[in-house]
Amino acid sequence: MSVRSEKTIVDIAEELNLSVSTVSRALNDHPNISAKTKDRVKKMARKLGYRPNAMAAGLRNNKSKTIGLIVPRISMFYPATISTIIQNKLMEYGYNLIICQSNDSLEQEIALANTLYSARVDGLAVSATLYTTDFSHFDIFKQQNIPLVFFDRVPTKDYNVKVIKGDDFLGGFLATEHLIEQGCKDIVHISGPLTCNLYKERLAGYKEALQKYKQPFKKPRVFFHELTRENAWATAEKIFSQKPIPDGIFATNDTTAITLLEYCRKNGINVPEECKIVGYSNDPRTEIVTPAITSVDQYPATMGERIVAALMDLIQAKHPPAYRHSQEIVPIQLIARESSAGASKKKK
């Protein structure tokens, strides 16, 4: 089998009897090259199967025009929506996006950070794993003045980077307050691991609401685990196997809330009459189940837009980025639906 010969701009120049510099300028839409010549060059490039070598160009100008993105799982509604917004907005600036998922593995996150650094990305946006507490594998980006932004799941201690996150404390407070206002006096909280900032802050909001309304905090009514369907079902079995059953549940993601609703339906527990449920993220599925589930909207589109704006500010700055801790908060909103006996209301 013969090895395929990669065509270059030299081949295009020879075919058209043009200089290599003219071909290069035509391919890059240089204003000094006529439209007729540009058209001839681009047609020949297509005919020969020419592929521009973006990596070589990047080495010459020290810019890859590529941004790296690390998210926990692309299958989840929130990071999937953010990834789409980031890609679309970056294209407006002429940048491409490399999307990587860590699968909530710290080992994979470290490997991905190294891979993206080697790929010479011009900037990196990261939503960390549930278990990332040491962020030193990202130090190389700071040392080399490569713009670095953390979002959603972010360092819990100052790491001297740009941080963009939701108002998770307020989200936890509003979700719990809403259940209390609906008459709940025994509210279960289902949380993710407290190594992650999201769940620390949502738990703090839950506790604050209980304290405000003079309801006791009960440790046995709080559960911690990865918020998968399987774990949610196992927790539901624990919760409802003992009497009395809780009259309210605040689940810190919608997969858990939907699973709880399914468990209640299969076991003859009426929602919201016997137990009210609130989720988190406003996943589109929460609107189409019956009853529709109250949830906290995190505005992923706003998050994606702010991530791109922060990266572009850092990339376009005249001086290398000054690495210091700065935090930007994306607002949240409680969307009340039938699972908590609320009419369709929004509460900020």
Rank of each mutant, 00 (worst) to 15 (best):
R202P: 11
K162Y: 10
F77E: 02
A54T: 04
M312G: 15
A257E: 01
P216W: 07
D39P: 14
T129I: 07
Y159K: 09
C184E: 09
D283H: 04
T133M: 05
G268L: 14
L97E: 05
V222C: 12
A111S: 03
M55S: 14
I307P: 04
R202L: 00
A301F: 14
F169N: 02
A204W: 03
E92Q: 15
S105C: 09
I332P: 00
G192W: 01
L148C: 07
N62Y: 13
G268P: 08
G304A: 09
P79A: 06
T286P: 12
E6D: 12
F77S: 03
T84W: 12
P246Y: 02
H178F: 12
P193C: 13
L130A: 08
L194Q: 00
I187D: 14
R51S: 03
S191Q: 06
A209R: 05
Y131R: 11
Y78Q: 11
H225G: 04
T235N: 10
Y213M: 06
P321S: 06
A336D: 13
F151K: 02
S136P: 04
Q144K: 13
K185P: 02
D186I: 01
T81E: 11
K219V: 09
V308Q: 07
C184Q: 01
V126N: 02
K36W: 11
P272D: 13
I258C: 01
L112F: 03
G279V: 09
V126Y: 02
A336T: 06
A54R: 05
A251Q: 02
N28T: 14
F173V: 06
Q316F: 08
R51H: 11
Q215H: 12
N253D: 13
T8W: 00
D168H: 14
H325N: 09
A310P: 00
Q211F: 11
L261I: 15
L130K: 15
K38D: 05
R221T: 00
E6P: 09
T294Q: 11
F217R: 06
I180K: 00
G248Q: 13
R306C: 05
A341L: 07
K36D: 15
T37I: 15
Q182L: 10
R4W: 10
H30K: 10
T129M: 13
L198A: 15
R60D: 15
